[in-house]
Design a protein around this nucleic acid. Structure first.
Lengths: 135, 135
DNA sequence: GTAAGTGCAAACGGTTTGCAGCCTC
DNA sequence: GAGGCTGCAAACCGTTTGCACTTAC
């Protein structure tokens, strides 16, 4: 197959803007909001419309190329999605986030879903608390 | 102390509106958005301003009398704290929802959080899949 | 050439806020 | 009586959308 094997073989056209967004997300660790990405692009000298940033991030997320989650106050934040599946332990007060894994949870969710006859199972899990520094 | 020992001794004045909100939340199972609560209040014949509903829910949440979490699309939803804690298994296609419980998960999240020194632990977990009818 | 992608600006929808009047303590 | 609480409407802010134009294939 002559299909591109490049990172992003998801049927999305590799336009200048799309690439710029991906690259920015790549070079920035952790989660960032659409507006942040837009600003970072500006700093890089790339001018990409805010609407385009929103659309691009959404499509990349749908395509499974990036992760999306919500901040405490409802903003969507994204990050490059390379790593293993894990969950977040978030401080309610300062927002500090720890990534945690739980193979047992993965198994449990799958088996519960299957018991009820559900297929194509996925799940989301977030843990909230007050971190040591904020107590 | 002559302090009220009524359910809700959180320093908030027990106004008609406040009580109506709490009562509505009591009688409605599960999570509901501010707008839903507002509508339910209307159906009950109570007229409470939308802004008041928002303010009330926020203060109740701050006071720890109700739980707040976010929907997939960033809306704030609230519920009375007392319900038994459970999770949802949701069909991606038709939206059918099954409530499931998992004591093991409860224990796991708590212990993970404590390992990281987090206090006041809570969590959210949702499982998505395709239900038998939709496969 | 055609469909997907883009930019702009206007529309949206949930949430917050300023302010004048009301009610609880 | 003083300060919290309420209602209304306007402001906010992140996000979405309509439309004419550009670009990748």
């Amino acid at each position: 197959m002559s299909e591109s094997s490049a990172p992003g073989s998801s049927g999305l056209r590799p336009t200048k803007q799309r690439l710029a967004v991906v690259e920015t997300l790549d070079s920035a660790d952790g989660f960032h909001s659409a507006q942040e990405i837009h600003e970072l692009l500006g700093q890089r000298g790339e001018t990409v419309g805010l609407a385009t940033v929103y659309r691009t991030l959404q499509r990349l997320a749908e395509a499974g190329e990036i992760d999306m989650m919500r901040t405490e106050d409802g903003e969507a934040i994204y990050r490059r999605c390379s790593d293993t599946h894990h969950h977040h332990l978030v401080c309610r007060s300062c927002g500090r986030t720890v990534e945690v894994e739980g193979p047992a949870v993965e198994r449990w969710t799958r088996s519960i879903a299957e018991q009820h006859g559900f297929a194509d199972v996925s799940h989301t899990l977030e843990i909230f608390g007050t971190c040591p520094a904020c107590r």
